[in-house]
Design a binder for these strands. Sequence first.
DNA 1: TTTATTCCTATTATACCACAAGGTAAGAGG
DNA 2: CCTCTTACCTTGTGGTATAATAGGAATAAA
Lengths: 143, 143
Amino acid sequence: MISTKGRYALRVMVDLAQQGGERYVPLEEIAQRQGISKKYLEIVLKTLVREKLLKGLRGKGGGYRLTREPGQYTVWEVLELTEDSMAPVACLRCGTEPCVRADACATLPMWKQFDGIVREFFSGITVEALAKGDGGQWTGIGS
Amino acid sequence: MISTKGRYALRVMVDLAQQGGERYVPLEEIAQRQGISKKYLEIVLKTLVREKLLKGLRGKGGGYRLTREPGQYTVWEVLELTEDSMAPVACLRCGTEPCVRADACATLPMWKQFDGIVREFFSGITVEALAKGDGGQWTGIGS
DNA sequence: TTTATTCCTATTATACCACAAGGTAAGAGG
DNA sequence: CCTCTTACCTTGTGGTATAATAGGAATAAA
């Protein structure tokens, strides 16, 4: 299950996309508009800044803004950076030493295929599409 | 992410399918073959018995066996019963009161579509297919 | 009646989730 | 220079889920 971290991150990205993208939007404003705890959002946004998806500016008139055009962010990218792991099963997490029964495992090919489908799905949706209300229009791999 | 509960359950189902399905297979044997803690498997199997996916028989010569043909179980069914929730996000869990910002939520349609894809994927694979090594042969919705 | 096995009721250790508190650094305006 | 505003940093906290373990009771076959 996708945790609030990834979901909140996505909502913030969409929020910022809808705000136009020129000005720096303070956290306070985002938190209020989205109805999310300000203190918790802080943690989420820290990650997005570290990963260069957002630019943060301190001081009066500061806040956060996108570093690219909304169409240049895929949902997959946002989720992968904020979620601890997007792997469907523990043995596919990157950094895990390969399972000793990998060869004999009857379920591993299924998990691998599933992993690919998830990646394809979320890679096919951009923040811009969500901001414009085009979420849920994915028509399949190769479309 | 799918927890060990669902994964172990699936591996047990496949194991039993591969054993033929006539005799009662003791937990000890399954646990050893699969390399999973016996005591923990017990908990997992309790669910499968309660949900009638397996039949348990106590006493000497007892153990577990499938209640149907392996081709009659879908992976989705097994995962849904053993995993707490297969919903990708909290607001889609069954039993959750609808989110107040559901109408305004830019991401909800995407989550709903994803949920459907996951369901289709795992519903299209049977325990029999996994047991025969046909996991990972899913060719898309409508195939 | 003995033995093998499932079934039942706890308890534990660990980790993660969602969030809160309080302070520090940096940038803008007076 | 002073102050205000804002992002950034460190730490703590209650709750819940995970992945087990422990010890026994019920049941069925030999």
